[in-house]
Nucleic acid binder design. Structure first.
Lengths: 340, 340
DNA sequence: ATGAAAGCGCTAACAT
DNA sequence: ATGTTAGCGCTTTCAT
């Protein structure tokens, strides 16, 4: 059979409680004893049973990541990877809970899963983090959660985000500084908090540069490649087309790139293209996409840190549990000065 | 406090064992009683504690997915998604265990994690599924596992794969049927079992068509975009360059596409490009890449099915636990007939 | 068909 | 600094 705490205690000639203390790195154990116990643990290959521990201690050492990303994009994958790595470091485990909010009954299923696993906390990614009824339910069962880029109700919980508006502003300034004045913009899906912020950043940079933005220069989008093709075509079919297009994420930027190829418009010489996210797809393109690097892995890791901070339960709305991580403007081949 | 089985038993006027029977869908409970219990469960919002159940029953209802994919490509994400969905359906949970086999000590960490979670089974993805010492250790602790595309030691465990060689053969035939005779091939990373199989499929199709393959037409690769650029450049810098290039995966195919753009070779008119996998990147390209669809999600789901089959433990090597799923040739815009 | 009692392996609370 | 006791919430015998 598997080795239990009793076996270790017996062989080491101590009580199970002492073994428990050693395993959990608690104080009040003499070094000599601690070492004896450690040795026996090694010898026997003892691994504490996570279930027994959770059952008696109310802590599960399990964190959940709630994802609603039908496309399972690089964004979600990066988040997950970042959270996973930090969890591993801290001796927690991560349970990923994919959710399809398009289908009925998901909320019940999710709550059942959460309750039966007795999660210690949950990370909510966009657009889930804006579902107020979901937040209500999590609060009702007293489950601490941290939101990634929620964009509203800031004081309701810990959160991690970047300065979306500032980043969009910076990207727009980059395009303007290259000499572009007629710039098209493709929006994201409205359910994401980032959508209005990125647009606002774009508009305010244009405004500040004193460049008017025609209503036909802003088109809707949905964060997908296909949406980018459509948005790109809409912008490029004008008799007088923009010299640059700023898409609200990388996948749409690639769509614009495809639309340009179709219409035989050369990138970047005849059209500059910018994206947002710096996901895996941004690098797998030619020319590579100029974009905003959003440190998704670190954002998820920060969320884990907040969740496992013992102080978090008591003051989830406290400002010290709000992290704004730095973005980075990544200039690649898709943006150059407009040809005269 | 949270509702326990005792609360339900009390309110329903039955023993805890009866509630347990109802919750687990066991026989020997009168319909009337069953319904009463169900009603009380609803009313109280009772959720069984997964830890308590696991502690007393030896089953954890937890499956692990072991991943060693530094790029965290679409392949890994698709696998995970497929496994996750099937687990949800079957009331299991999935714990993802990323592994960086480049770093020392990963094996100990992994084993500790597995042991403490008392996993019911594990899914091994490439290239981990070929690490014989790891398989030895899993067998030593008696943990059932299923491998995805292991390519060797077939009788050692259940496995799920596709006909890699047949798929590469089909792709090559497609290119030949379009009229290509001078075709370049970029290999995958040697640690993956798929690498030699895809090459073999390519070679045998060429051979069958009676087309000789020059040694300089096969170049090494590593499944990355960058590797694809390099491989593509190597093939395209020849005075007489191939009219088509078949890359062992999509990311490399995109790299070839980028290399062609750099060298101002038009795709598909001057160069046809084919990939393999049909990952998310294949569609986010222009022209979209002709490729082989590998049903990664279904493969992972099949692995879950095998693991939770009660008969699997007793005969893991049995042929009925080997699944070969169908691939599909997806013809997109990147392959057309060579221009005369 | 249903129930009573005895753990599963660990930790919290309380000794000592 | 270390040990003892009593559960955590469920399932497993084994009765009835």
């Amino acid at each position: 059979m598997t080795v239990t705490i009793k076996d270790v205690a017996e062989k080491a000639g101590v009580s199970t409680k002492t073994v428990s203390r050693v395993m959990n790195g608690e104080a009040h154990v003499r070094t000599a004893l601690r070492e004896t116990v450690m040795r026996v643990v090694e010898e026997l290959g003892y691994r504490p049973n996570a279930f027994a521990r959770s059952l008696s201690s109310a802590r599960s050492y399990l964190l959940g990541m709630l994802l609603d990303d039908p496309a399972w994009s690089g964004y979600a994958a990066g988040m997950q990877r970042g959270a996973l790595m930090r969890c591993r470091e801290k001796h927690y485990h991560l349970v990923v809970e994919p959710v399809d909010s398009g289908v009925g009954g998901w909320e019940e299923e999710l709550m059942a899963s959460i309750a039966s696993l007795r999660l210690d906390g949950a990370i909510l990614t966009p657009p889930l983090c804006r579902l107020s009824p979901l937040l209500d339910r999590l609060e009702a069962i007293n489950l601490p959660y941290v939101r990634i880029s929620p964009g509203e109700d800031e004081s309701r919980s810990g959160l991690v985000d970047i300065d979306e508006e500032g980043a969009a502003f910076a990207m727009t300034e980059h395009l303007i500084s290259l000499g572009h004045r007629d710039i098209g913009f493709i929006e994201g899906i409205p359910s994401h908090a980032a959508t209005p912020k990125r647009r606002a950043g774009f508009l305010s940079a244009m405004h500040r540069a004193g460049v008017p933005v025609g209503a036909d220069r802003i088109v809707p989008g949905d964060f997908t490649f296909k949406g980018g093709i459509e948005g790109g075509e809409a912008l490029l079919r004008h008799a007088k087309r923009p010299t640059a297009i700023f898409a609200s994420n990388d996948d749409m930027a690639l769509g614009v790139s495809a639309a340009a190829a179709k219409l035989e418009i050369a990138v970047p010489s005849q059209l500059a293209i910018a994206g947002f996210d710096d996901g895996p797809t941004a690098r797998v393109a030619w020319p590579p996409i100029t974009t905003i690097r959003q440190p998704v892995g670190e954002m998820a890791a920060a969320a884990v840190d907040i969740l496992i901070d013992p102080a978090y339960r008591d003051a989830p709305g406290d400002r010290r549990f709000h992290r704004e991580l730095p973005y980075e403007l990544i200039i690649r081949g898709s943006t150059t000065a407009p040809s005269a």
